[in-house]
Amino acid sequence: MEMFEDERGGPSTEQLPIVGYNHLPGRTAESYFPSLGQEELSDLLRYEQTHRNRLPIIRSLTARLRRLREQKNARPPVAGGYGPPAARPPGGTE
């Protein structure tokens, strides 16, 4: 019995953010990742885990998603360095 790739679960190839993803070699597929958002990367990760299961691609997608989440949760930098001088407390001395 022949099983088509879209019958195994996960997003179908038509739902992927990269046209022809299922035919791309790993390095070519990875070159698209920096331009994608979290939801698109998550779709690709689910597809890859379900259909292709290429470990280097799964690692790359996972790392990219982790970086995006960390950037989203990062706090703004504290004043200092090249920014404006920090405010001094009233009546404080140095």
Rank of each mutant, 00 (worst) to 15 (best):
P34M: 07
S35I: 00
L36A: 04
L36D: 08
G37R: 10
Q38N: 03
Q38R: 07
E39W: 07
E39R: 15
E39I: 09
E40C: 08
E40L: 05
L41E: 08
L41T: 09
L41D: 10
S42C: 01
L44A: 05
L44K: 03
L45I: 06
R46Q: 10
R46M: 08
R46K: 06
Y47S: 03
E48I: 01
E48F: 05
E48R: 02
E48N: 04
Q49K: 12
Q49P: 01
Q49G: 08
Q49V: 11
T50C: 12
T50R: 12
T50P: 06
T50M: 03
T50K: 11
H51P: 00
H51S: 08
H51C: 07
R52A: 01
R54I: 11
R54W: 10
R54Y: 12
L55A: 11
L55Y: 05
L55I: 12
L55T: 13
L55M: 14
P56F: 04
I57A: 06
I57Q: 14
I57K: 10
I58P: 02
I58C: 07
R59V: 09
R59I: 02
R59C: 04
S60L: 06
S60E: 12
L61D: 09
L61T: 08
L61H: 07
T62G: 08
T62H: 01
T62S: 14
A63R: 14
R64C: 13
R64P: 00
R64N: 08
L65D: 04
L65A: 07
R66I: 03
R66K: 14
R67H: 03
R67W: 02
R67T: 09
R67G: 06
L68A: 11
L68C: 06
R69I: 09
R69W: 01
R69Y: 09
E70M: 14
E70L: 15
E70K: 15
Q71W: 07
K72Y: 06
N73L: 15
N73C: 10
A74H: 08
A74M: 14
R75H: 14
P76H: 04
P76V: 09
P76L: 12
P77Q: 12
P77D: 08
V78W: 00
V78R: 06
A79H: 02
G81E: 14
G81V: 12
G81W: 13
P84I: 03
P84T: 09
P84Q: 11
P84F: 01
P84A: 03
P84H: 07
P85K: 04
P85M: 03
P85W: 00
A86S: 02
A86E: 04
R88T: 13
R88N: 11
